[in-house]
Amino acid sequence: MSRIQAKWQSLHAAGRKAVIPYVVAGDPRPDVTVSLMHELVAAGADMLELGVPFSDPMAEGPVIQKGHERALAHRVSLRSCLATIAAFRESDALTPIILMGYANPIERMGYAMFAEAAAQAGVDGLITVDLPPEEVETVNAELKKVGIDNIFLISPTTPNDRIPLITSQASGFIYYVSLKGVTGAANINTQEVAAKVQQIKSETDLPVAVGFGIKDAASAAAVASVADGVVVGSALVSLLGNEDKTIESRCHDAVALLGEIRSGV
């Protein structure tokens, strides 16, 4: 059983919903990422989503774009992200880690080499924004060999008859994008989310986590009531980018927000 599956099993057994924070590796500064990851876990994160910085993050809103830019200013790469995860794993063998990013850095490294290096570093899942099921054959074959889950996005524009094509390729969980738009966009409609989550669940036994547009404890609680978990990204990255504060207090604020969200879910 993968770390991700084991985590869902223990969450279900405890009747808990998953809280999954997203931060960009190396943001705001590469030397604080590992400790930030540990602190997020201590504040109640069930899994961690680590963004791989990319020069052209097309699906991101302005907040997370800036996070990518801050990390790239320190020349953070896919290779250094994997080194960060390996360092985190030295003192946390249980918390699932999901890499989230774009196809090109992986394509550049080579899918086989990436899969091997990621498994060795302790990566459990992969979300590649611009690899829809139609383009995923090569990477899926490599991920299967090393036991890394490939996690797919489903969006409000995904027609119902397309959902089985996605769920049949997916493992770990399904990431439901709660709105049409980029990360960090407008408010979400819980009723619409509930209906689509039900639709997805009628096609698959995989858990469904919801992200894109969860801003605070209240919106997280509302969404968590209709899904298996919530992903919180822009709200954290926004705090990490607050230039009026020191790096340490930015991390402190992000961890504190995650703690609030955890207690409301």
């Binding site: 196809a103 027609p159 994008v177």
Partner: peptide, 9 residues
């Protein structure tokens, strides 16, 4: 077609 799911339809 290397785009996010939202654009596929």
């Amino acid at each position: 077609k290397f785009v996010s799911e939202t654009l596929m339809s």
